[in-house]
């Protein structure tokens, strides 16, 4: 693929994306419109994240791609291969070694550090979209800080179910100003969003939006005094590494209803196993 520019995108497109990233960092949680380009993979498959990664990668970076926390899911493999070919960057599965991590639906378990960049793939960047389908209206609501509708929705959940019935893409408020969609990460990951040492960039290709969280930004999951935010997870240890602090995938192991729970973050799990930790289902 040598006919294409470094990291695929032409320089003018990268400049446009880079300018949007800078404004995103200057206004944490605000969705910056950008002229997303058609990429050689479908909209909805990470084109926003891919464009952001293409705009930030340098040839010296170490790039990691995860989907559902795993490095070896097919779409993660596909995106990693794309950048190996078009940017010639070195890739890794080790979270600690990576300088740029593109993710879909998870934040790695291991705390990220300064010098790292986490790029999220975002399907619907607008946290108010399912309450108000019109962009012209939601943009007005953000400008007026009119977030009552969101609180009403969450409170209706409580009155109906006794709980807030949002378990992923759980809305957050950034620095007391913008309500932001953290992408469809499980709410278990929400507490990692705030005060993170790494830079967090969010790219929504089809919806043409980029937003950002600088390091050490205050990010609060929306809740109520009598119903505080609860980042729950399945109440099991990982079957392979025994971790009790990680987010778990549920795997069906037979047709008699047998199931086990394993870390969704494959790097975290294998590093723990390599360090000698074992779970009850490990060989």
């Amino acid at each position: 693929m040598t006919d294409y520019n470094f990291a695929y995108l032409d320089e003018q497109t990268k400049r446009m994306i880079r300018r949007a990233i800078l404004k995103g960092l200057a206004i944490p949680g605000y969705q910056v419109p950008f002229a997303s380009r058609e990429m050689p993979m479908p909209y909805g498959w990470g084109t926003g994240g891919i464009q952001v990664s293409a705009a930030v990668l340098t040839p010296e970076d170490r790039f990691k791609v995860i989907d559902q926390g795993a490095d070896d899911t097919t779409n993660a493999v596909s995106i990693r291969t794309f950048f190996e070919r078009t940017a010639g960057v070195k890739t890794t599965t080790a979270t600690a070694e990576a300088t740029v991590i593109q993710t879909r639906h998870r934040i790695p378990e291991a705390p990220l550090t300064e010098g790292q960049i986490l790029v999220y793939q975002v399907p619907i960047p607008e946290p108010l979209r399912f309450l108000e389908p019109r962009e012209s209206e939601t943009r007005k609501m953000h400008s007026l800080e009119e977030y009552g509708l969101m609180h009403v929705k969450l409170y209706e959940d409580i009155s109906r179910h006794g709980h807030i019935a949002t378990s992923y893409a759980y809305p957050v408020k950034v620095e007391g100003r913008y309500v932001m969609d953290p992408s469809p990460i499980p709410k278990f990951d929400n507490p990692k969003l705030g005060d993170m040492a790494a830079i967090q960039l969010f790219g929504a290709g089809r919806e043409q939006r980029i937003y950002a969280l600088p390091p050490y930004t205050q990010v609060v999951s929306l809740d109520f005094e009598d119903h505080p935010f609860d980042p729950s997870r399945a109440d099991h240890p990982c079957g392979l590494c025994g971790a009790e602090d990680s987010y778990l995938d549920e795997v069906i192991v037979d047709d008699a209803g047998g199931r086990m729970f394993v870390c969704s973050d494959t790097d975290y799990c294998s590093a723990r196993q390599a360090a000698g930790h074992t779970g009850k289902d490990a060989a």
């Binding site: 470094f6 990291a7 320089e11 990268k14 400049r15 880079r18 990233i21 800078l22 960092l25 200057a26 705009a55 930030v56 990668l57 340098t58 040839p59 830079i199 950002a212 600088p214 390091p215």
Partner: peptide, 14 residues
């Protein structure tokens, strides 16, 4: 420009 941008981005982010 990739390197230069990273410097600018780090500066704006921190």
């Amino acid at each position: 420009s990739a390197h230069a941008f990273r410097s600018v981005m780090e500066a704006m982010a921190r």
